[in-house]
Amino acid sequence: MMRLEQVCRDFQVGDQVVHALDHVDLVIQAGEYISVMGPSGSGKSTLLNLLGLLDRPTSGTYWLSDKDVSALGDSELAEQRQRNIGFIFQSFHLLPRLSALENVELPLVLAGAPPKERRARAREVLDAVGLSARLDHRPDQLSGGERQRVAIGRAIVMRPGVLLADEPTGNLDSKSGDEVIEIIEQLNRDGISLLVVTHDPDIGGRARRHLVMHDGRIVGDERTGLQ
């Protein structure tokens, strides 16, 4: 469902051009569970941003659900993001003034869903991540693990095909981190594609497909487990 063909992403740093992604070819099927590992600056985050349509390739083509999205304008990109992609960030990125329920509702608000419908949908999703007792709590009244679960709820409330997680457990203790991983793995088992960028070999090892990046290239692509 996602296909990169000879994708490059160059950054200008001073008078030097950095190839954050260097002619990357990648095919991701629906329902895959992929981890992306590699040293800092190897291009992991750039790959994630590009797959999540937050960034555009300098050259090459990106096919998302058989649609060339490498040259779309801002509003079309925004629509594609809204419909197809859920993000989970290391630092949660919840809006502090909104309750858990309102944070989860936010994508539906942006999509223009009617209030009744989005409220019901947000409750459903928070129930799924085990936070039905915390609907009206603001982020500062929640623990780190709970905050990340709210963020997961927000990521899946639009029922996207792909969940992109950038160091989802980076700011959590190991117990909360395990809970979070459990939840997103369960979502993957229910059919969503999952791509996790991580430094942690334990978490990376749980995926069924392991990408290793180095200097903007994919240097390792192994599949394990029940493939």
């Binding site: 937050l54 925004a78 629509e79 993001r81 990125h93 936010l106 942006l110």
Partner: peptide, 16 residues
């Protein structure tokens, strides 16, 4: 800035 970035990641358009 971060909030704006988040809204964009969640599918907010420039016009919005």
């Amino acid at each position: 800035t971060q909030e704006i970035g988040l809204l964009k990641a969640l599918g907010a358009k420039q016009t919005e």
